[in-house]
C-alpha cells in the first residue's frame, strides 16, 4: 500500500510559496462539511510582504510592452489548461457541483485569460483618444496602470470569480495582492502554481489565503496600495475599507458584471499629453 502524497496549500508571495509567517492554518470543508485541507492562514505581515513584493514587481510589469503582457496572459491560459483536471476536482468538491458543471467553469476561466490577453495591447487604442483643442498642440490621452491593486474576488466562486478579478488588473499593467475566497481557497493556490510556471514575473500576482475580515482592514489602510477590487467584501468590510482607503485616495470598486473592459479601466488612470507642434 502506498501512502497518499497530499499537497500543502501555501501562500504565493513574490514568486515563492511560503507558509504563513504566523505559522497558522485554517480548515476548509467541502459542500457536505467534510474536512478537505488546511491551507495557510495569512497574517497582516504576510499581507505587508505581499504588498512589498507587488510594489517591487510593478516597475517591470507596467513598463513591459503591452504585447509582452498579452503573450504572458495567453501563456497562463495554456498552463491552466494543463491543470484543468485538478481544477475540476477542486471545484466539484468545494462548490458541490457536478464535474460537468465544474469543467464548464474551468473552461470559462481559461477563456477569460485569453480574452483579457487580447485586450492588453488594444485597451489604450480603444479607451485612449486624440483630443481636438484650439492651440498649436498635439493632444492625446492614454490609460495607464494605477499601481498595486488589492483584490478580493467573489466569495461564492471557487475559480471563475478569481480569474475574472485578477486578469483585468494585471492585463492593465498593475500588480495584484489577492485575498482568495475564504471558503473556497484551494483553486487560488492551484492557480498560483499555474502562474508560477507561465513566465509571469514573481510578485506581479501574490495570493493570500485566510480570513477575509482579518486581512481587509489592513489592505484598506495600507498606504502603498493604490486601488482595491472590493467585489468579495461584505457590506461592513466594504464600508470600513472605503473609509480607511480614503487616506491615500484609493480607487475602490465593486463589480457585478464580468469580462468587460470596464474592469480593466477601473484600475487605470488617464494621462493626457500636450505636445507642442509647428514650432
Amino acid at each position: 500500500m502506498r501512502i497518499d502524497i497530499r499537497k500543502t496549500y501555501k501562500l504565493y508571495i513574490g514568486g515563492a510559496f511560503p507558509r504563513s509567517e504566523s505559522g497558522r492554518t485554517y480548515e476548509v470543508r467541502d459542500a457536505k462539511s467534510k474536512f478537505i485541507a488546511n491551507p495557510a492562514q495569512a497574517s497582516r505581515k504576510d499581507l505587508r510582504d505581499a504588498v512589498t513584493a507587488a510594489r517591487s514587481a510593478f516597475g517591470g510589469w507596467s513598463s513591459a510592452t503591452a504585447f509582452n503582457r498579452s503573450q504572458i496572459l495567453y501563456r497562463i491560459a495554456e498552463m491552466m489548461e494543463a491543470r484543468s483536471e485538478e481544477f475540476v476536482e477542486e471545484i466539484a468538491l468545494l462548490e458541490g457541483i457536478s464535474r460537468v458543471a465544474a469543467k464548464k467553469q474551468v473552461d470559462q476561466a481559461i477563456d477569460a485569460w485569453v480574452w483579457y490577453s487580447g485586450w492588453c495591447d488594444k485597451i489604450s487604442t480603444v479607451a485612449g483618444s486624440t483630443n481636438p483643442i484650439s492651440g498649436p498642440f498635439y493632444n492625446f490621452t492614454v490609460p495607464e496602470s494605477v499601481g498595486v491593486v488589492g483584490v478580493f474576488p467573489a466569495q461564492k466562486s471557487a475559480l471563475l470569480g478569481l480569474v475574472q478579478a485578477i486578469a483585468p488588473v494585471i492585463a492593465g499593467g498593475n500588480t495584484a495582492v489577492v485575498v482568495a475566497s475564504q471558503k473556497f481557497p484551494l483553486c487560488a493556490v492551484t492557480l498560483s502554481e499555474a502562474l508560477a510556471t507561465s513566465d509571469l514575473p514573481g510578485g506581479v500576482v501574490n495570493i493570500l489565503t485566510g480570513i477575509t475580515s482579518e486581512l481587509a482592514p489592513w489592505m484598506g489602510a495600507h498606504m502603498d496600495v493604490d486601488a482595491i477590487d472590493a467585489t468579495g467584501l461584505s457590506k461592513e468590510l466594504d464600508k470600513e475599507v472605503r473609509v480607511s482607503g480614503a487616506d491615500n485616495l484609493k480607487r475602490i470598486h465593486k463589480f457585478s458584471s464580468s469580462d468587460t473592459p470596464q474592469r480593466m479601466l477601473a484600475f487605470m488612470e488617464y494621462k493626457t499629453v500636450w505636445h507642442p507642434i509647428g514650432i
Binding site: 510594489r55 489592513w218 489602510a221 495600507h222 498606504m223 502603498d224 480607511s244 487616506d247 491615500n248
Partner: peptide, 12 residues
C-alpha cells in the same frame, strides 16, 4: 509611521 498611525506606510 506604522507605529504612530497603525497603518502600513508606503515609500510615497
Amino acid at each position: 509611521m506604522k507605529l504612530r498611525n497603525g497603518n502600513y506606510a508606503g515609500p510615497n
